[in-house]
């Protein structure tokens, strides 16, 4: 088919941050589907909890302290996370490198505490359905946490190589920031569900 030039796009930039970038939308898509998974798992918990009048099925209350520490760590991590986002937008390689190291450490810290969270549930997964659901919820979020921390560490290493200093990588850092927000955000309802809902009943 014949063609006629009608538009010159040679002046467009080669990368963009946030909603301008396709990766941001891809990340949002994965958040949507993972969020649906979380919501359904939480829904399954609430379904069983309302089905059985004696919910918690005579299990002891979970010890909330490891979970509370994880929650505080995650909330605190949001501050450097958003500072990192600003540096990434400015393409400031030095501060971005430091920020990525900080975020890697702030990713590993809750994982260490998480190790103590499982025994603090005070029930095993195969004791009864209540125990199963607690382990499932905590397990889901832990998988989430491990994959994102792994991703953050790899990206941190990448930022220290010669590949780091490029617009594309700064975009990747921005998307990593975005995803970490999601990891923190999904934890809050799960935290309430695991530690505080059983205390209501």
């Amino acid at each position: 088919m014949n063609q006629r030039p009608a538009m010159d796009i040679s002046g467009l930039p080669t990368f963009g941050h946030g909603p301008r970038s396709p990766t941001w939308w891809g990340t949002l898509g994965f958040m949507a589907l993972e969020g649906t998974g979380f919501a359904l798992a939480a829904g399954a918990y609430l379904y069983l909890a309302t089905l059985w009048p004696n919910w918690r099925l005579s299990a002891p209350q979970p010890n909330h302290w490891p979970g509370t520490i994880v929650t505080l760590l995650l909330i605190v991590s949001l501050v450097p996370n958003h500072m990192l986002n600003r540096y990434a937008k400015e393409c400031a390689i030095g501060p971005v490198r430091i920020g990525m190291v900080v975020m890697s450490l702030l990713g590993v810290a809750p994982l260490i505490v998480r190790w103590f969270e499982f025994p603090a549930l005070n029930i095993y997964w195969d004791t009864n359905a209540y125990g199963s659901m607690l382990w499932v919820l905590l397990g889901l979020h832990t998988t989430h946490l491990i994959t994102d921390v792994g991703d953050t560490i790899v990206l941190t290493v990448l930022m220290f190589t010669h590949h780091g200093y490029s617009g594309r990588r700064f975009g990747d850092v921005g998307d990593n920031v975005f995803y970490w927000d999601f990891v923190v955000l999904t934890w809050i309802p799960i935290y309430l569900l695991i530690y505080w809902i059983p205390r209501l009943g």
Partner: peptide, 10 residues
């Protein structure tokens, strides 16, 4: 139908 308008500059 005559000619498809296109963008250039990639």
């Amino acid at each position: 139908r005559e000619a498809l308008p296109v963008a250039t500059g990639l």
